[in-house]
Amino acid sequence: MIWLAWRQHRAALCALGVYVLAVVALMVYYRSTMLAEVDARHVWNCLPDERTQACLRNRSYWQLWAISVPAARNVFWALAGYMVLAGVFAGAPAFGRELEQGTHLLALSQSVRPRRWFFVKLGMVAVPALLGAVVLGLVRAWWVSSLGDLMGARERFQPGQFEVQPLTMVGYTVFALALGVACGLLVRRVVPAMALTLVGAVGVMYVVGRFLRPHYRPPVVGQFDRAEFQTDRARWSLRQDVIVDLAGGDVDGARRDAVLRACDGPWGSRAFEGCLVDHGLRLASFVHPGHRFWLFQGIEFGLFALLAGVLVAVAVWLLRRRMS
């Protein structure tokens, strides 16, 4: 039975494997060239903390930093792409192709139990794909951590880094796979199922990151105080230095404009802040402190794992309904 599942899905799994190897090679290449650059430019001392006086004025370091940004972005899209591709090319055809070609009738009229057939196939697709996600997440973490501040190692809470951590990678991948499997059983054709999986996976990941994640916990509303926030480099700032009322609530545009006309002076100066307070307002930042990182990772992973579980249950239900 395992042979059958492997024989059916080996092409997609091999393609995913090649993808993983290519992206790992890219990250290894980036890491070694960047380490060589750090060596050549003698900027090792800036990696643990780039905000020292010596480093802030080191042009050579910041040139290198500017080069590292596109590398980080490329890898982010490569890893985000992997999770979606796993759903599209491994998840959607797993049962979509069987139903499209009618071969599920062949498989289900053998002695093997439908449930076993379903879960062996699912496992054959899911286990290697999740392994790929873990490998990609870990290699990326290894690359980033070896370069410290140059790669923003402490800014892993930021969107763009948060999503490609090993734990969230696994959550997204298992979700995309389950979505693909459910779509395949629902639409019963491979290409439409792949398209639906692509749109669905990207859409859900975007919506969760943009609208849900900031609210996993209420943000900490801080008084305007640069020093306080600068000490927590791992924080995730939702909004910084915005005008709110004294209770921390939002201010409507008209009142805000009136105050801005009345209060002069550079944003953040004592005079400006004093003027705001006279009008019953203040500056505040909305922040998730860095120590919430693992809590948020856990919530995000749990959310996508839960969604995946629901989708697998839907898939099992669809399979049973096909048979009644």
Partner: peptide, 19 residues
Amino acid sequence: PLYRGFTVAEMLRFGRVTN
């Protein structure tokens, strides 16, 4: 319905492992 990419021998193996 048969698996299109399988050989005849692989279809027989399919029968063996699923039965």
